[in-house]
Computed example of a mutant assay.
Amino acid sequence: MKNIQRFVPIAALLSLSLTGVAIAKTALAQNRPSLGLSPTAPNFLLSIRREGGMCAAMGCFSEVAVLSNGTYRYADSSPKQRTGRLSRGEVRRFQQRMANVNFEAIKARPFTGTCPLAYDGPETVYTFRSGDRVEVLRSCQTHIEGSNPLFQQAERVYREVSEKSE
């Protein structure tokens, strides 16, 4: 009986923790500002979004969205949005890599670690449009291989654009 009594408070705390993560993810999804770019628009190319992390208020995020002409928009939890342009070569490399990557194989490999959202870190959401297909990959659901050239390029562009915006 003592073991059961000890288990109940632990189970209750675990339930509250998981509920808190679920509430935080729901709040992020509801409060996430839009860059005004729909992944289904014909000129949408890709976006890299970080959601969550150590924030005083809900809605912590940063995002780079790129159009097929190279124009990008950057936004984060601040009220400002910034724009710029990637080179034609950069866009061409993205298009070639997206055309050649096997998204089904990537999605078939689930993420098995602890999602960074569980310890106040961000989740990364990659959205790619290749032809008529839109692929959305969440780092807490899908194992993202860091050696994949598409993800290496996406992360490099995200870093360069976000650093320009600081």
Rank of each mutant, 00 (worst) to 15 (best):
R73L: 13
P79I: 05
P116E: 06
R93C: 03
V66M: 02
E163P: 04
N43V: 04
A154C: 10
A154M: 06
P116T: 07
R82W: 14
M58N: 09
T142S: 08
Q95P: 00
T124I: 15
S130W: 06
F128L: 04
R49Y: 07
L14G: 12
I4G: 05
Y74R: 05
E123C: 11
I48Y: 07
T19D: 10
T127H: 03
Q152A: 04
V125G: 00
L37F: 06
Q95E: 12
S139M: 04
P9E: 02
S139L: 09
M54K: 15
Y72C: 00
Q152Y: 08
P110S: 10
E51P: 01
D120H: 12
N148V: 13
F151K: 00
A65R: 05
S15F: 15
A108P: 07
R82V: 13
S77K: 07
L67S: 01
A108F: 03
V161E: 04
R85I: 05
F128Q: 02
Y74A: 03
G84L: 01
D120P: 06
S165H: 08
E160H: 10
L14A: 15
R159W: 07
G89S: 11
E123K: 11
Q5A: 13
N43H: 05
A154I: 02
C115S: 15
F103W: 11
D76N: 14
S15Y: 14
R133L: 11
C55A: 14
R49T: 15
S130K: 09
N102G: 02
S87D: 10
N102F: 02
I4N: 08
P149R: 12
S130T: 01
L35A: 14
C55M: 14
P79D: 03
M1N: 12
Q95F: 07
A99K: 12
G146N: 15
P79Q: 03
G20V: 04
R109D: 08
A27C: 07
A22Y: 08
A22W: 11
R32T: 13
S78N: 14
R92K: 13
A27K: 13
